[in-house]
Design a protein around this nucleic acid. Structure first.
Length: 265
DNA sequence: CACTCTGTTAGGTG
DNA sequence: CCACCTAACAGAGT
């Protein structure tokens, strides 16, 4: 489930494993994952012989800058992942693009459903990449203050669930974490932004930061999530971790949202 | 077996 | 501009 915390964890993985190593070969196993202007031959020509200098994240996108002044853009879609494999180790399932390093190790972009993107841009400036330029602010940045959040909330009329997921307003939150934030804030996800009280907006803001930060700290793994999280109970017969009542499922803006009708008002 | 559902987003329609 | 729908794809669940 690649939302902001998941993508951030992948960014750290790349940072720890794949920087400053000579890229020897790029294998594109599935061309359909490539962006419009990107071809296997461009990837080979631009990346072979160069190195990844840095791994950054913007919203749900990964940005790898290279020594030939390119930026590799990765989006994981719904089922994408980043897997680092040492020499001799088995290649992961659904590997779509492979970046082989001189020492035989390999960074794999995997994606079962091919919903996602791998693209190379001839720039070192992320904001010149259209996908990045249109994104809203980073929710975890200190500069994303309550005032700014409140302004976004008050200037749109939609459900809080949809607003949190709107990448052009706030970057990185998807269906799952939107639900978790609404749950932690004690606000029904289908509540309209116009009817939120000042205190509710404050709660959503606070919990947004908290949920994302904690999820990253936990490695964005579902298993050890704190019991007070909604996420592990976010299914058909889930129970509210706060009051053990039945979790309700509702379609909001075309997406399935889960919440506790008792403790989320 | 057939049908429904799924973490995302671009693009089309009315 | 907005709300809503679908496609892209593959697998798990009912």
């Amino acid at each position: 489930m690649p939302e902001l915390p998941d993508v951030e964890v992948r960014r750290r993985l790349i940072q720890e494993t794949s920087l400053n190593k000579e890229i020897k070969k790029v294998s594109v196993l599935e061309k359909r994952i490539l962006g419009n202007e990107t071809t296997p031959s461009i990837l080979s020509r631009e990346l072979c012989g160069s190195i990844f200098l840095s791994a950054n994240r913007r919203g749900k996108y990964l940005l790898l800058s290279t020594s030939k002044k390119n930026t590799l853009l990765l989006h994981l879609g719904m089922t994408g992942d980043i897997i680092f494999v040492k020499k001799g180790e088995e290649k992961p399932k659904w590997s779509r693009v492979e970046f082989y390093f001189a020492n035989g190790s390999c960074l794999h972009y995997t994606n079962m459903r091919l919903i996602g993107k791998v693209a190379l841009f001839k720039t070192t400036n992320p904001s010149s990449i259209p996908d990045i330029a249109k994104l809203g602010p980073e929710p975890l940045e200190r500069s994303f203050t309550f005032k700014k959040f409140e302004k976004i909330v008050k200037s749109h009329s939609t459900t809080i669930h949809q607003l949190l997921m709107e990448q052009e307003l706030i970057a990185g939150i998807g269906n799952i974490y939107s639900d978790e934030i609404a749950f932690q804030a004690g606000v029904r996800p289908d509540k309209n932004t116009k009817s939120l009280t000042e205190e509710e907006i404050r709660q959503v803001y606070k919990k947004m930061k908290w949920v994302l930060r904690v999820a990253i700290e936990l490695g964005a793994e579902l298993d050890p999530y704190p019991r007070r999280f909604l996420i592990p109970n976010r299914d058909r017969k889930g129970l509210c971790p706060r009051d053990s009542n039945k979790i309700m499922k509702k379609t909001i803006g075309g997406r399935s949202s889960y919440f506790c009708p008792l403790c989320q008002k």
